[in-house]
């Protein structure tokens, strides 16, 4: 549409240009540009109109993002309300049994929440320390050249589609774990948790590194000049100064893990047991949504509405995490 308007304007300008050409021949030798400009001014009414319409048009485009948010909220809330008419909200949030397809269906979300939190926890066990250590290395130890090579390579890791990680978890990591630990099931929460951790490393590394590099050099120099080693400077000066930025990166990592879908869907199966045994299959909120919507639940059925109740819970979880991250990192910015 925008492109269309551009073309349109250009065409109009082309037409006035043609008119220009005709009047030009008569002008002959002496060139009076300001007079020509004054003449053209009269023909400008269309471009004046464009000038007035453009801000409104762009404003409407900007509203689309707001509409998207409203669309998400409306979709989730309106359908979730239908669900809560059929299943009491209390039962949903405290129920430990999830049997949507049974004769007497039960809709307790706790199995999904435990699956989500456990996989997130495993992922953060991997991504937290490794991401932070990578950040320390990149920000405090690596030379410019090394950093210039390592950072883009880490970013590749972040650019790999999650479905590829899912494949990797299911066909490589799980069999590998089962070699070492035969009790682990063919689908389990451990393997996708670990792989999800690897996926989140670059996110935590780069956000924490940003926080650390924005610590003023004077603070580092103050510590180094006292005879402190780099290690001591990092742990006693840099990390404390960048602490809220690092926390924010962890929180965003958690949010990312909670919302991650394909890795857990593929590698953790669809068992809805309320358990804390990481060798077993567990379902996350995201994986439940994939399973139910892919199973072509008839619109209007309780199980169809349950999708939205779960998605709403998921949405609230990640929203809280994102707001928390923003709050923490804004506090951090005020420090210097």
């Amino acid at each position: 549409m925008y492109a269309l308007i551009l073309c349109w304007v250009q065409m109009l300008e082309g037409v006035t240009g043609e008119m220009q050409k005709n009047s030009e021949v008569r002008h002959g030798e002496s060139l009076n540009v300001s007079e020509m400009i004054a003449q053209n001014k009269n023909k400008k009414s269309i471009s004046n109109l464009v000038e007035k319409l453009i801000p409104t048009f762009l404003f409407l485009l900007a509203l689309i993002t707001v509409l998207t948010t409203l669309g998400i909220l409306y979709t989730l809330l309106s359908q979730a309300i239908e669900f809560f008419k059929q299943v009491p909200i209390w039962e949903f949030f405290t129920g430990t049994v999830l049997k949507p397809l049974s004769q007497n269906p039960e809709f307790g979300i706790l199995p999904l929440i435990s699956g989500t939190l456990i996989s997130t926890f495993i992922a953060m066990l991997v991504a937290g320390p490794i991401g932070l250590m990578s950040a320390v290395y990149l920000s405090e130890y690596a030379s410019d050249n090394v950093r210039r090579v390592l950072k883009p390579m880490l970013e590749i890791l972040a650019g790999i589609p999650t479905i590829v990680y899912g494949f990797f978890a299911f066909t490589f990591v799980t069999p590998l774990i089962r070699e070492i630990w035969p009790d682990v099931g063919a689908t389990n929460i451990l393997s996708p948790g670990l792989v999800m951790g690897v996926m989140i490393i670059p996110m935590i590394a780069s956000l924490s590194e940003d926080a650390m590099t924005s610590v003023p050099n004077a603070m580092r120099e103050g510590s180094l000049a006292m005879g402190a080693t780099k290690l001591e400077t990092t742990f006693k000066v840099v990390i404390p100064a960048a602490f809220s930025g690092i926390i924010a990166s962890f929180v965003l990592g958690i949010s990312r893990a909670i919302g991650e879908t394909m890795i857990v869907t593929i590698a953790s199966g669809s068992s809805k047991n309320f358990t804390f045994d990481i060798t077993q299959s567990m379902q996350t909120m995201t994986a439940y949504i994939v399973e139910v919507s892919g199973g072509e639940a008839p619109a209007g059925s309780t199980i169809y509405y349950s999708l939205y109740a779960v998605a709403l819970t998921l949405f609230v979880f990640t929203l809280i995490m994102n707001l928390l991250a923003r709050y923490v990192s804004r506090k951090f910015r005020e420090e210097y």
């Binding site: 300008e13 006035t16 240009g17 220009q20 060139l31 540009v33 020509m36 053209n40």
Partner: peptide, 18 residues
């Protein structure tokens, strides 16, 4: 000159030189 609607190549060339 262009933003003020002068499109003729010859005129523009002349403007550039002047």
């Amino acid at each position: 000159p262009k933003i003020h609607g002068i499109r003729n190549k010859k005129v523009l060339d002349e403007i550039v030189e002047t």
